[in-house]
Design a binder for these strands. Structure first.
Lengths: 248, 248
DNA sequence: TTTTCAATGTGTAAGATATACACAATAGTA
DNA sequence: TACTATTGTGTATATCTTACACATTGAAAA
């Protein structure tokens, strides 16, 4: 997969010429969630010789905010057309405390629009960019110190995700095509931060009529082989429109 | 009450000098809801020789977005410290289609951050500003054509309000201090857009333990006098923190 | 090969919550 | 004084949520 780049050749050119391409004072930050090894993960970027931060970017002059967020997401993950939703705009004038890039457009006050994405972990090949040295998944419980107010942004995304669990079967976006009921349950438990009853969970999930149990079972585990399930895409799509309600 | 003004003496000065005071490309629009005569209302502004629009404004360089929204709200209603919440940022580059103020900072592409407010109708004294000729309440079912994407913004606010009804006893903000159970029910019915059962509604509302029934009854109506209620402020505050759940 | 282990698959009863529903009381109006 | 439209109130049913235990099985260990 080709490495994707900013439309600039160097950090300096980006700082000097960014204002021609991007709207000033505005950025987009993405909280990209994945699920792996029974843990909820978030994709973070490390600035060269700097702290970790959320993958973000800027809004081009003739681009919608959604398009910007999709572009940024694609640059970091290689994915497009996955679940991506705006959740809040952060704009405390003190949020860049500590940032000192005098003069440059990037040194100005920024208001950032937060998006959260749900992606399938195994499909993602994290990509750093010109300004960053590393891009990798972190367990949400173990994220390091983040720059500016990015921890706050992440927490608000997590909170939003928790709420949206009720009207949105997030498993569809976060799990691989075929998955087991215990996996699905772990996902819910991780997002909600509390354990759920196995039998009741299964009952509720199946009662939504969105899951199809496959003939196969998942082998390789050390114990009894669980069934595999997949989402019924047709029902899933129409359920999203009607709006569904799950509660725990 | 003194008329509140923009920090400019004229429309022209505002257009020419606005960029010194405000962040470019960014605005805030408020969907201000009130409740009166059993109907949900929204406060709209009419541009001089132009269409109706949501009351909005711009973000000062050293002001948080919340502060901007509060300022704008105060300018239009005279109220402060009422319920005001950010709900979405709108930024389609085509949203200003039809707007033609060449050259001026205000003619640029704008991304607007939407807030919705819940206010007590009787407390509000609508104030037009330099740029507008009129400011008044409209029944949400009867709002006229609005400028740009303001109708979309209003609809999203309405949708958000509908959802937030579940974790937020909106009556506290929209109704006068003393109100009747039928009034409260009408409010819910209006927001939800569907009729509710009188007995079940009352049962649920009272079961929240947020209401205090007063000795007085409301007189003047043509029929049996209903009791008056008020919110139990203490319980209300603590319930908001714990998060409460109402469902219909 | 057998035993052990830890996880999976499954149903029912009790409790809580939501829904459906009807008649007596009353304040103002005619 | 009678009428009318609105308010106040309780119960039975259905639905949904919760709590809970044992037999099965695949792999690993003995």
């Amino acid at each position: 997969m080709a490495k994707r780049e900013l439309p600039f050749q160097s950090r300096q050119e980006f700082h000097e010429e960014g204002h021609r391409v991007f709207l000033p004072h505005l950025s987009v930050d993405c909280v990209i969630f994945g699920f792996h090894n029974d843990a909820l993960k978030v994709l973070l970027l490390k600035w060269k010789q700097g702290p970790w931060c959320l993958p973000g970017g800027f809004i081009k002059h003739r681009e919608s905010i959604d398009q910007s967020a999709n572009r940024i997401l694609k640059e970091r993950t290689g994915l497009d057309s996955i679940f991506l939703e705006q959740f809040y705009a952060f704009g405390d004038p003190a949020r860049e405390k500590g940032k000192r890039v005098k003069g440059a457009w990037i040194g100005k006050r920024f208001i950032t629009i937060g998006y959260y994405a749900l992606v399938e972990y195994s499909q993602v090949f994290p990509q750093p960019d010109l300004l960053s040295s590393e891009c990798r998944w972190w367990d949400v419980d173990e994220v390091p110190e983040l720059i500016y107010d990015h921890k706050e942004i992440m927490n608000k995304a997590l909170y939003t995700l928790r709420l949206s669990l009720n009207d949105h079967p997030v498993g569809y976006n976060l799990l691989p095509e075929k998955f087991t009921m215990p996996q699905l349950q772990k996902l819910y438990e991780t997002i909600l931060g509390e354990p759920l009853d196995r039998r009741n969970f299964q009952k509720q999930m199946l009662s939504l009529n969105l899951l199809i149990r496959l003939k196969e079972r998942k082998t390789g585990g050390a114990h009894k082989a669980p069934f595999l399930y997949k989402f019924d895409k047709k029902r899933y799509s129409s359920a999203l429109q009607t709006g569904l309600r799950i509660s725990f």
